[in-house]
Design a protein around this nucleic acid. Structure first.
Length: 434
RNA sequence: GGAGAGGUGGCAGAGUGGUCGAAUGCACUCGCUUGGAAAGCGAGCAGACCCUUUAAAGGUCUCGGGAGUUCGAAUCUCCCCCUCUCCGCCA
């Protein structure tokens, strides 16, 4: 949520950010107008209330309270009427402002490149060279199905489209990746958390997942609980409503979780394979920082995410998302994209965002610089470190060999317990089922 | 799911209609004291919003949430949420 004070203080900045995102900035004037009216109303009502409170106190101090109450009754009644009249409009006005403000995305960092689509994202770094294979690379779903480790057909029978079943080494590799990711995060001083995968509407709202633009969530209507679309939600909201002491910052959390997304707006996109499913698994990284440290934290977060990919020897690049592509909560986002040989291009695997005080304001996560200082909002950041399915995709595609087998990256072998999926037929030891 | 108890400031814990945003203790901040510390002493110490150049002063609201009774509600009434104990069920 935007700071209303910011809209008042620097409307131009808010307008500019909205139009860079390709949104109509008309809400700024509307909010300012409503706000002016609201404050005038409130001041008026509060003055009347102060008058009433003074009279009430006079009754309390009177030697004969009943008589005093009786004497002041007409005056009090008149005040009550004026208060009620003035107050009647307040909830609607406040609600309208709240709603408008709640639907406005975060103010972009001035450094975010201006653009109209993901085409305008700026590549800031490339690691490794795109894998070139001496044969025609197969897409990961073909590799996985041929190896018997991915089963889309049975998944569809169980749950419909956009699900998969992992089998054998596929399932084990998935489990290995989760442990690998968590261990690497822990080594970089993230505290591992095992959060709930279902959260309340308030929690979902507090991290900015429930705006009017979002219908991406699976939910249980009878209990009003939502399946998390990412562990960012419970991790960021972990300290909701708290006032932290400044010296505990930064707080760094990581969590494994399944993620559930309707992918309603993605019809026709990535309909095959693991890239876009209704359910996937991920290890998420979250920071709560001092405001002046969040920029630096974003760099570290990206580096933490990168380190895992590099250790897995997967060629990737880092892109600075342009104004049209930065999400609702974020002021600035860097995506990591891995090379997919079958598509001959880089595809998103991780998104690392600085949400500044946007989520913190919605969630009421504050801190004090000193024990007697005023509370301020923290800055929150989140990034994938990493998703299992897309990492598996990158491994299958980049490490595929001509015989259809797939090498396991060295770093993962201790976790997986095997070094290759689908041993070459020439090797008599390999029985393919491990 | 059933029965009972309870939700008050960072924590503990008073407060059952009036000058209570709330005693007291602990914690915390500042000062005094001390060679230094502890103890002791003094002062301060919830949040949001409004007003305000800053500060100060002031105003409104908040004692789980919402609605109500009353001139006046932490205190009374109703609804909801949550926690704890016992029973039932269960991985």
């Amino acid at each position: 949520m935007l700071d209303l004070a910011l809209v008042r203080r620097d409307p131009e900045r808010v307008r500019d950010s909205a139009s860079r995102r390709g949104l109509d900035a008309g809400f700024v004037d509307r909010v300012l107008e409503l706000d002016t009216r609201l404050r005038a109303l409130r001041t008026n009502v509060e003055t009347l209330k102060a008058e009433k409170n003074a009279l009430t106190e006079r009754i309390a101090r009177a030697p004969n309270r009943a008589a005093a109450a009786e004497a002041l009754r007409p005056e009090l009644k008149a005040l009550d009427e004026r208060i009620a009249a003035g107050a009647s409009e307040i909830p609607a006005l406040a609600g309208e402002i709240e709603q408008m403000l709640g639907d406005v995305p975060n103010v972009l960092d001035p450094r975010v490149p201006v653009g109209r689509s993901e085409e305008d994202n700026v590549v800031v770094k490339q690691w490794g060279t795109p894998t070139s294979l001496p044969f025609t690379p197969k897409p990961h779903w073909e590799i996985g199905e041929a190896l018997g480790i991915l089963d889309f057909e049975r998944a569809t029978a169980l749950s419909g489209s956009r699900f998969t079943v992992l089998r054998g080494e596929g399932a084990r590799l998935s489990r290995a990746l989760i442990n690998f990711f968590l261990d690497r995060a822990a080594a970089r001083s993230y505290l591992e958390v095992a959060p709930p995968f279902l959260v309340t509407r308030e929690t979902m709202w507090s991290t900015g997942q429930l705006s009017k633009f979002s219908d991406a969530m699976f939910a249980d209507a009878s209990s009003d609980l939502f399946l998390i679309p990412t562990a960012e939600v419970p991790l960021t909201a972990l300290h909701r409503g708290e006032i932290l002491s400044g010296e505990t910052l930064p707080l760094r959390y990581c969590a494994y979780s399944p993620c559930f997304r309707k992918e309603a707006g993605a019809a026709g996109k990535d309909t095959r394979g693991l890239m876009r499913l209704h359910q996937f698994e991920k290890v998420e990284l979250v920071w709560l920082t001092l405001p002046e440290r969040s920029d630096e934290a974003l760099q570290k977060l990206v580096a933490d995410s990168e380190a895992v990919l590099a250790e897995l020897e997967i060629p990737y690049r880092v892109v600075d998302l342009c104004s049209a592509d930065v999400g609702f909560n974020a002021a600035r986002t860097f995506d990591l994209e891995t090379w997919l040989p079958s598509q001959g291009r880089y595809r998103e695997i991780s998104s690392c965002s600085n949400c500044t005080d946007f989520q913190a304001r919605r969630s009421g996560i504050r801190f004090r610089r000193a024990p007697t200082a005023r509370p301020e909002f923290v800055h929150t950041l989140n990034g994938s470190g990493l998703p299992v399915g897309r990492t598996l995709t990158a491994i299958l595609e980049n490490f595929q060999e001509a015989d259809g087998s797939v090498r396991v990256p060295d770093a993962l072998i201790p976790y997986a317990g095997f070094s290759r999926i689908g041993a070459p037929p020439a090797s008599p030891q390999g029985n393919g089922t491990t």
